[in-house]
């Protein structure tokens, strides 16, 4: 296929809106498929862990959520950089659409971590380096959302949010390593999350499928949210007005009355 795809075309919200609408069902289907396979492998096929019993099965949710929580922040910073560099409207909308899902996964990761920690370590929370930095990541997400919601002008909100996301992404490695060193200096390595790569292959597959399911879910949800943001911000434009009058059930009646 030598057809050249015109990426710039889809940077226009009016072109992106229908494209996202077409893609969303596919990503939902993939999310459901991967989710069923992953959970089936994880909950039914994978053997019970000889050390951790059945409790370990929470990793099928936990690991994927942790990956996504970090990955989404990087993607958000990527869109932020694109938005600042090329001054595209859609980039800011994508960053705004990604943030709530990032919060969701960070929260799920922390919560499932607590559920796992209680039977394994006997505590809901320990100041482990990874848990602490995940908590700080949650703060960074909250800060991003709070800042963008506090600014009424959407263009300024996008730019300010983009700058904050970039500052955050530069700081994440610094924060991670400082927390790690703090952790090793303050308390002995009484607990370690690393289990090595001795994990059974079937567990790994289950985890990968669950992570893929979350990935597809993220794309589907973010595209849906981006469509909502597009409609809200472009409501004054002609194409949104025609789109809404075409789809809305009440509109034809109103038009008929006008005639």
């Amino acid at each position: 296929m030598t057809m050249k795809i015109n990426w710039y075309k889809f940077s226009a919200p009016s072109a992106f809106y229908p494209l996202a609408g077409k893609l969303i069902p596919w990503f939902w289907a993939l999310a459901a498929l991967f989710g069923v396979v992953g959970l089936w492998l994880g909950l039914l096929v994978a053997p019970t862990d000889f050390q951790q019993g059945e409790g370990y099965r929470i990793i099928f949710v936990h690991v994927g959520a942790s990956w996504m929580s970090m990955f989404i922040y990087v993607v958000m910073a990527f869109w932020a950089a694109i938005g600042l560099a090329f001054n595209t409207r859609l980039s800011g909308m994508m960053a705004a659409a990604l943030a709530p899902t990032g919060v969701l996964f960070t929260f799920v990761s922390l919560w499932t971590g607590a559920f796992w920690g209680k039977p394994m370590w006997g505590a809901w929370w320990v100041w482990d380096a990874r848990m602490t930095s995940e908590l700080i990541l949650l703060f960074l997400y909250i800060g991003f959302i709070a800042l963008t919601r506090a600014i009424d002008d959407p263009r300024r909100a996008d730019k300010a949010g983009a700058l904050l996301a970039l500052v955050g992404v530069v700081n994440i490695p610094i924060i991670y390593f400082s927390v790690k060193w703090w952790n090793t200096l303050h308390q002995g390595a009484s607990v370690s999350l690393s289990k090595g790569s001795s994990m059974a292959a079937i567990m790994l597959w289950g985890m990968l499928f669950c992570a893929l399911a979350m990935w597809m879910y993220t794309i589907a949800v973010v595209l849906t949210r981006a469509r909502g943001i597009i409609l809200e911000r472009e409501r004054h434009t002609e194409w949104v007005k025609t789109l809404l009058t075409q789809n809305a059930p009440i509109a034809p009646i109103a038009q008929a009355k006008a005639k």
Binding site: F139, L140, G143, A146, L164, N171, I175, S178
Partner: peptide, 10 residues
């Protein structure tokens, strides 16, 4: 404070 405090941690 919400924006700045997490970045102050290191």
């Amino acid at each position: 404070s919400l924006l700045v405090l997490p970045l102050y941690i290191p």
